[in-house]
Write a protein that binds this DNA or RNA. Structure first.
Length: 329
DNA sequence: AAATACCCCAACCGCCATGTC
DNA sequence: CGACATGGCGGTTGGGGTATT
């Protein structure tokens, strides 16, 4: 026996909301508030709608300061950054984009942004593959999924690592090491250096002159969506941080895969915190990340990371599809 | 001009978390 | 402590609009 429905489905109206219904709901909530009980609201407001439907309509469309229309590059960047770190937690992502709703962001991601990213992906690892890629630096862009077959049953080609810090000597650039957290760790030979290009893209540069943009950049400007402008101070800190994302281990430069670090915005702080959770915190100056732009405390973020870090991404490759087996080669 | 394919997005569905009794 | 009600969320659907054939 299933759960009791939240309302009498036979007597409630479904489908698109009419302007009259919108006005009715808006007027009622503006006068009386929601009363903390959506189920009880429709009859009080004179609506033949399910309470959940009213809630959704209010949250996604009627409440004040809802922003519709084109997403900015900043917003794109924030969405991608957060998706890369916490996956499809649309409500959390929406909380970082004032005026945007989770539904909006979800739709935008599913219909446009994902395709946009696929189109601009610089590496085979970022795109769906139909063949085994060779001769690319292992800078595939996003986290891996612990639930994926490749992770749960590591290929013999993949070195087993117990942490981000003891994996070294992986000269095979096609073989990313992996931390237990689900981050991919990339091993970068000491012949390569890392710098930030004029366009804020992090660049791998080899002594022999080989230069490869390693990271995807969402917009070239270090712009800021902060309303109070406080993020301006973060620019230098963020650039400094980029250096902290790499460390030398056994003569090799080890880097935490940080495809989205090229973006410099409030969200950058979030990402920094995320990485800090994984062990880099001790190298960061105290207090730099004391303020999180999120409504979540650091502890809550840690919780989020620990519970979700392994459950996201591979968003271009369905876990059950054939292509995924190539993802880490 | 008609038929078909494709895209977008508002809305729904159902599961899970949380609060209350 | 368990049952129930409700809120919140992410996944999915379906209808309308647009593009293509």
């Amino acid at each position: 026996m299933g759960r009791a429905p939240c309302c009498d489905k036979a007597s409630v109206k479904k489908g698109p909301w009419s302007p009259e219904e919108d006005a009715q709901l808006k007027e009622y909530i503006e006068k009386h508030g929601t009363g903390g009980n959506w189920i009880a609201l429709p009859p009080k407001a004179g609506l033949r709608r399910c309470g959940k439907s009213c809630r959704l309509r209010w949250l996604n469309y009627l409440r004040p300061n809802i922003k519709h229309g084109e997403f900015s590059q900043d917003e794109d960047r924030i969405i991608c950054s957060l998706f890369a770190n916490i996956g499809s937690r649309w409500s959390i992502i929406a909380a970082q984009l004032p005026g945007r709703t989770d539904n909006d962001i979800k739709n935008y991601w599913n219909t446009k942004l994902k395709k946009k990213l696929i189109g601009m992906a610089p590496f085979p690892s970022f795109q769906k593959r139909t063949h085994r890629a060779t001769n690319y630096p292992s800078v595939s862009l996003f986290q891996t999924s612990k639930s994926s077959s490749a992770y749960s049953s590591p290929s013999p080609a993949l070195p087993s690592t117990s942490s981000a810090y003891n994996c070294s000597n992986y000269n095979d650039l096609n073989t990313p090491a992996r931390s237990l957290t689900g981050y991919e760790i990339m091993s970068i030979p000491s012949s390569l250096s890392i710098s930030t290009s004029a366009s804020n893209s992090t660049v791998l540069q080899a002594q022999d002159g080989f230069v490869k943009d390693s990271l995807l950049v969402f917009g070239a400007e270090a712009s800021c969506s902060s309303s109070d402008g406080s993020c301006n101070n973060l620019i230098s800190q963020s650039k400094e941080l980029e250096c902290h994302e790499f460390r030398v281990s056994n003569g090799e430069l080890m880097g935490l895969q940080s495809s989205l670090y090229s973006g410099i915005d409030q969200n950058q702080k979030f990402l920094s915190n995320v990485v800090g959770v994984n062990g880099f915190t001790d190298e960061k100056p105290n207090g730099v990340y004391g303020e999180t732009p999120l409504d979540y405390s650091l502890e809550e973020i840690k919780q989020l990371i620990s519970t979700n870090i392994c459950n996201n991404l591979n968003f271009f490759v369905d876990e059950n599809k054939e292509e995924e087996k190539f993802l880490y080669y």
